[in-house]
Design a protein around this nucleic acid. Structure first.
Lengths: 139, 139
DNA sequence: TCGTTAATGCAAATTATTTGCAATAAGGGG
DNA sequence: CCCCTTATTGCAAATAATTTGCATTAACGA
């Protein structure tokens, strides 16, 4: 196990969820991931620790993890869902179109403008998605 | 036919594309749409004018339309592709989570900040996606 | 330790989208 | 205006991603 999965136990218990072996494995895969893997990829990594864990379980588990707030699910440009752990401050993503790499950033100012815009349109902002696509600048 | 499809003929010819009956119909469906329909919906509407137009043709045609710059394809929260005509100034979307309605808006300031952020990260911005999700504010 | 019930594995079902292929139709040339 | 070449279409089958039904298994509070 690469590292502890912070919060799994507490979050599950708080929602009356059982802590199973596969949930521990999946949580661990996610907490030790330094990228934004999609579901099949998470499944592959989980299978390295338990070759009989099923894809359905991964899907179901991720849905639950998203519900209890352990992770966030994003999908970039219509592709499959990608997962990242929901810890640390909120941020948005810049996708490097030359290699698919995802870079995180945050901008207080954009956050503020979003709320402002929604308000102006008569809406209460409940969520948002901001993705930038770009290629490395030749320096 | 509700209205002319501006540009279809010129855009197709410019790319050596043939102008077929089904392309005219699909272009017309799109140009007279005041919402952001997904592909099955476009197919349904197209069938009202030609009951034997096929779903594949709609998919293929939309891909071509996107290539020649007649439309844009978006997908909100991982859902199916939705289509809107690529005319008028660039804008972003606010999705009403209570009914799925899409509201367009634009913000020069956010546009500017995006370019700025990308630049700061060493990237040249090639595209972006900004979606706000919210519910109508009780006044 | 036991019993209740959530969770799992597997296969089948869905949904969105793409593709192979034979039949059809645009549209430039004669 | 007719022909011929070749893009385009329709249809069915193929993919891909994700979900679901159901019988079996395993958590965990009593």
């Amino acid at each position: 196990m690469t590292q502890k999965s912070p919060g799994l136990v507490e979050l599950c218990k708080a929602k009356g969820r059982r802590i199973t072996g596969q949930r521990k494995i999946i949580a661990d895969v996610i907490s030790s991931a330094h990228d934004h893997p999609d579901v099949p990829e998470i499944h592959r990594r989980a299978m390295r620790k338990d070759e009989k864990i099923s894809l359905s379980t991964v899907y179901r588990t991720l849905k639950i993890f998203a519900e209890i707030g352990l992770i966030e699910q994003h999908s970039f440009e219509g592709g499959p869902f990608r997962v990242e752990r929901a810890e640390g401050p909120h941020h948005d993503h810049l996708i490097d179109t030359t290699n698919g790499r995802v870079i995180e950033f945050r901008s207080e100012e954009i956050e503020r403008l979003q709320t402002e815009i929604a308000e102006k349109l008569g809406y209460e902002l409940t969520g948002h998605r901001l993705e930038l696509y770009g290629r490395p600048k030749a320096k």
